[in-house]
Every structure is written in C-alpha cells, then in structure tokens.
C-alpha cells in the first residue's frame, strides 16, 4: 500500500536510471579501491626485489658461490680502491643446506606421522589436544625456541654451539607446518579410494603407505617445501644454537654458518655492507625458487 504512495506521480523511467547509476558508481569505486590496494601490495614486493637486485648484483660472481667471506681488512682495502669485495658466502650456503637438511630429516618423519595420526583419529580428544598444542608451538617466538634448544642441546649434549643444536631448533619450527599440511592434504583424498584399497584385503599400514601417501604426495611436498622456505631465513634461533663459522664445516657437533647469520655479521661490519645485499638477494632468490617449485608440484598433480 505504502509503495504505491511513494511511487505516485513518478514515472518508472525516472526511477530506474537513478538506482542504476548509484550501483554502478559503488561498483566502480570498489573496483578502484581493490586495484589501488593490490598495486600497493605488489609494489612492496617489486621494490624489495628491485633494490636487492640493484644493490646486490655486482657482488654476485663465481667467487661469491665458491669462497668464504674476506676478513674486514681485505674488504676495507677493496672498498678503498673501488673494487668489489673479494670472497663469498660458501660457508653460509653449505651451512644453511646442512642445517635445513638435518632439520628436515628430523621434522619430516615426525611431522608426517603425527599428521597421519590426526587424520585417522580426527575426532578423538587426544587428537584435538595435539592439534591445539601444534597451534601453540607455531606461535612460540623463534628466539624462545632458540633459548630452549640452547639449554637442552648446546649445554647438555654438544657442549658448545653446533649444527645439531641449530637443526633441532629449525626442526621444532618446521613441525607444526608439516603436521598441519599433512593432515590437510590427507583430508582431500576421497574415502572411496581408501575403501578400494581395503576391499582388496590390504592391511591398514599398507593402505597408508601405498595409497594415501602417494595420492597426497603433491600436497605433502608443497607443505614440506613451504616449511623449508619458512625456516631458511630464520636468524634468531641460529644465533643461540650454531653461532656461525668463518669456514665450511661438516662436523655435526661443531658450529656452522648460515646465510641469514652472515647477513647479520655483515651488517655489524661497516666494511662488508655491500655483501649484505648480495647475500639477501641469494637468500630471497632461493626461497622464491622453492615457492615456485612447490606451486609447480601442486599444479602438476592435478
């Protein structure tokens, strides 16, 4: 009834264009807003990568990947004569790979097994408890993990800074990521596949090992690679556990260097500042590569 009163005296054609332009205006404003904010986000990434490349590229050469860092005197001499700083970060590269390798060896079996347990027993109270604890673990500041590992491993086991201590700290940081990604990617597998295997008389552990894990392989790999790229840049826990090493080291009970540790050391030495940028560029390039690899694996399986 009221409607007819409101509309009284107005033609339909008068009402429609008003409404129409109002909606279109809102739509446009919204679109412009989205474009501006997304450009802002993208420009951050472009600026970061761009400045790394601009400041770091001239230090990237063969020596960068094959030699250890120079001492501060050599760096100063090179700087004063306007040359690039000699030496490289091979001790950091090998150290990072060593640390991440051992950390993965520790974290992947544990993480995948716990993930399988959570998937299989998702409704049990104990599983819910583990899930909550995993979330808590993910929220623990990395420096705290470093401190704890210092107490447990550096003081008690290796009696000094060591690869083992650093790896344990990184493994603890990887665990929650791997547990959750394992559980999530297993959940994506349809139950019918499990039934098919069980109906063939397959014992349960073989169903898990030969059907569930291969079927969710791409998800598992993606989770693991993302976890690795997450810990590659960790610095704080490494400072308290492996300290750093001016030379290459393969002894698990001795300190080792890592790329982020080197960046921190270069930062503290005014003669080495140039090496910060090339090291950062390397680290970021490596992480980016891992990310692209994990995306590629995820896409290939589909």
């Amino acid at each position: 009834m009221n409607q007819t009163n409101i509309l009284a005296g107005k033609k339909v054609t008068e009402l429609i264009p008003d409404l129409f332009s109002g909606r279109k205006l809102k739509d446009r404003l919204f679109l412009i807003g989205i474009v501006i904010f997304s450009l802002l986000t993208i420009s951050m990434v472009v600026l970061i990568i761009g400045s790394m490349i601009l400041k770091g590229y001239h230090q990237i050469n063969w020596a960068f990947f094959t030699q250890s860092p120079p001492d501060t005197f050599q760096a100063m001499m090179a700087k004063m004569s306007g040359k690039t700083i000699p030496g490289g970060i091979i001790n950091g590269i090998t150290g990072s790979l060593y640390l991440v390798g051992i950390a993965s060896l520790i974290a992947i079996p544990f993480g995948v097994l716990i993930g399988i347990y959570l998937y299989e027993n998702s409704k049990k109270k104990y599983a819910g408890f583990i899930r909550d604890i995993t979330d808590v673990l993910q929220g623990v500041p990395s420096i705290v993990i470093g401190l704890i590992v210092y107490l447990w491993v550096v003081v008690e086991i290796t009696h000094g800074y060591s690869v083992l201590a650093g790896s344990v700290a990184l493994a603890i940081m990887m665990l929650p990521l791997i547990i959750r990604s394992t559980e999530e990617s297993l959940k994506m597998i349809p139950d019918t596949l499990k039934e098919a295997a069980i109906a063939l008389g397959t014992p349960y552990y073989k169903v898990v090992m030969r059907v569930l894990i291969p079927s969710s392989f791409s998800g598992l790999m993606t989770g693991i690679l993302l976890a690795i790229s997450r810990i590659l840049g960790e610095t704080a826990p490494l400072m308290l556990t492996t300290l750093g090493n001016p030379a290459i080291n393969w002894n698990i009970a001795k300190p080792v260097s890592a790329v982020p540790l080197l960046i921190w050391q270069f930062y503290n030495d005014p003669n080495m500042v140039d090496l910060i940028w090339s090291s950062s560029l390397f680290l970021m390039g490596f992480v980016l590569l891992l990310n692209i690899l994990s995306k590629w694996i995820a896409a290939r399986q589909k």
């Binding site: 596949l193 063939l200 073989k206 169903v207 079927s215």
Partner: peptide, 22 residues
Amino acid sequence: RPNPFPTLSIYDNVIAGYKLNG
C-alpha cells in the same frame, strides 16, 4: 562410484590387489 587408483596406471590398477599386498 568408480574408484580406480589415480596414481597408478591402468595395468597397475588391475593388479593393484597383488601390488598393495606385496
């Protein structure tokens, strides 16, 4: 619903019972 193993070839799907049980 048809539920062949997506990670196995047609050949391996047929003998999946033998393969899975070792």
